[in-house]
């Protein structure tokens, strides 16, 4: 793994990227009990094989998803986080009122 294909910046040297760990399945904060929270926080994917992770292109601070094989250390695919959720996530519009109440 020397070159990583950033969905936003294209192929870049792997030293420009930071790993943020495996993608966690979403949790419902209203219904989750202690055991579910414990699993959510500490029980991350350690499968030898292809895992799905959060990565960041550090200079541009762009976050995306990479599928990487943890046995061969090869990138299988990289894509925008929107693809993970099946729809685009737009940042909530922040009004000046919310910043300074």
């Amino acid at each position: 793994m020397k070159i990583m294909n950033c969905p936003f910046n294209g192929p870049r040297n792997s030293s420009e990227f930071t790993c943020f760990g495996p993608v966690r399945p979403p949790i419902d904060p209203d219904t989750a009990d202690d055991a579910a929270w414990s699993r959510h926080m500490f029980q991350l994917d350690n499968t030898p094989g292809v895992i799905r992770e959060w990565w960041r292109h550090t200079p541009s601070n762009y976050f995306f998803i990479a599928e990487r094989n943890t046995v061969t250390d090869e990138i299988v695919a990289t894509y925008e986080p929107a693809a993970l959720h099946g729809k685009a996530i737009t940042p909530k519009e922040i009004t000046p009122k919310e910043i300074m109440p």
Partner: peptide, 9 residues
Amino acid sequence: DPYQLAATR
């Protein structure tokens, strides 16, 4: 190493 791996490369 900065990211997880199951191999001793």
